[in-house]
Amino acid sequence: MTTKPAPRFLSLDVFRGLTVCLMIVVNTAGPGAKAFTQLVHAPWFGFTAADAVFPSFLFAVGCSMAFAFSRPIPLPAFSAKVLKRTALIFLLGFLMYWFPFVHHVDGHWALAPFSQTRVMGVMQRIALCYLIAAFAARFLSPRWILALCAGLLLGYWAILLGFGDGDPYSKLGNAGTKLDLLIVGRDHLYRKDGGFDPEGLLGTLPSTVNVLAGYLAARALRQATDTRKTLVRMAGLGAVLILAALAWNPWFPIAKKLWTGPFVLLTVGIDLLVLAALTAVLEGREPNAGTRLFQVFGLNPLVIYLFSELFVVTLNQFAIGGVGPYEWVGVHVFQAVAPGAVGSLLCAVAYMLVCWLLGWVMYRKNWVVKL
């Protein structure tokens, strides 16, 4: 743990904090009613607002790299730092899915078996994408990074077309699922999608492009001599990428779970537009109460995300009559006040604000946890 550095890139902190806010709201939709459609991931092909959250977090990881890697550091020290951070984030993600490590069976507690624990996941994908992107940023110029991004997207498309069974874009017939079953094993995959893991190994390739895009965007902002012109170009590129995604979609469908190439272009385009807008509005201005809400999340995003996942699981361990505290509050309080999707959203926002309180304490104490 280190003291909070100064100065910060305010628009990046707000961008990252906004992403964490939405991530918590999407992941902890209030029980008792269906959430709004835009706050639920598309079942397969298609796109909703919820689908933009994870790639935006990866984009923010890349933005942070542009500042973290701006200082010269010898290759051995750089490699050790990157490998250590990769291992730590991956391990925390794995332990998060294993938590609470025990379950209740026939009236007694038993250790949750490793043989049935998910290996891949959100933080594990962050770790692997960070690993690849970090060494790409170290050794490649921006032009070669762009070439790498194109190679990753087109190479991933070619692998899906060349090694899938039947429909190359189906959940169980795509090459990524085949690779996960071969290397990871069915018992270590995501349990809720019929044997398909949305954060599987092969999907790391296109996901890394989101990180590299964030790195290039923040690098351009950091080195800009004319910020206004850079922001106009960034917004223009964002619009072009969105149009390119829509044009590619008939041949390679937009799909978050499969993390297709058009999905990458679409989400990077959206992130470029959002970051350009935030930078235009916020940079050069003092933080205020509105930005501070998101700054609190943006300073310790992985810690708060971990807490949000672990705390709700912990609450569910105290279920009475088969109903956990979170479910009870969602149904008997928020659904009673505002039935339907509105109540579900209010419950999720309330939980997000509970998580914000942890971030606020860390903010007040000037704590920034370097994961």
Rank of each mutant, 00 (worst) to 15 (best):
A137T: 06
I24G: 06
V61G: 02
A213G: 14
W248P: 04
K171W: 11
H104A: 12
G203L: 05
L201E: 08
G17S: 00
L246F: 12
F15H: 00
L272Y: 00
D51Q: 09
F139C: 12
A280M: 00
K256H: 14
V354K: 08
R219I: 08
Y351D: 06
C63P: 04
T225M: 01
T48A: 06
V102A: 14
L152E: 04
F163A: 09
Q38V: 01
D165S: 13
Y363K: 09
W157M: 09
A220D: 09
L216M: 04
L243C: 12
P253H: 03
A66W: 14
I24Y: 05
M362D: 05
L140Q: 11
S70M: 13
D187T: 15
V102E: 09
I89W: 05
V349A: 03
A319E: 10
W360R: 10
T48D: 07
T37L: 10
G261R: 06
A137K: 05
A33I: 05
S70V: 10
F252Q: 01
D106Y: 12
A33G: 07
R16Q: 15
A80V: 08
H188V: 03
V232C: 02
L146S: 04
K192W: 09
F263K: 07
Y351K: 00
L181R: 11
G155A: 14
F69W: 04
V122T: 08
G214K: 02
K229S: 12
M1S: 14
V323N: 03
L353S: 07
H41K: 05
A338P: 02
G298C: 12
I320G: 12
G121F: 08
V303E: 12
Q223D: 15
T291R: 02
G236L: 13
P339D: 05
I159L: 09
S170D: 04
A338R: 04
Y97P: 03
A49E: 03
R292S: 06
L95V: 01
Y190R: 11
A239L: 15
P262W: 10
V368W: 09
I242Y: 09
V349F: 02
A224L: 11
V40C: 13
L140Y: 14
R228E: 01
D193R: 06
G62Y: 01
A133V: 08
F252S: 03
C355L: 08
F196H: 04
V361E: 15
E327S: 05
K192L: 13
W360I: 00
D51V: 07
N27V: 06
P31R: 02
G121N: 04
P301H: 03
F9H: 00
V102Y: 14
F101H: 02
Y190M: 11
W98N: 04
R285Q: 13
L172T: 13
A147Y: 06
L92G: 06
R8N: 11
M23W: 00
P206T: 12
L154A: 15
G176E: 02
L237K: 04
L243Q: 05
V312N: 00
S115F: 08
I242M: 14
Y130W: 12
L299G: 04
E283D: 08
D106H: 11
Y169N: 15
F15S: 03
N288P: 06
V349M: 01
L111N: 07
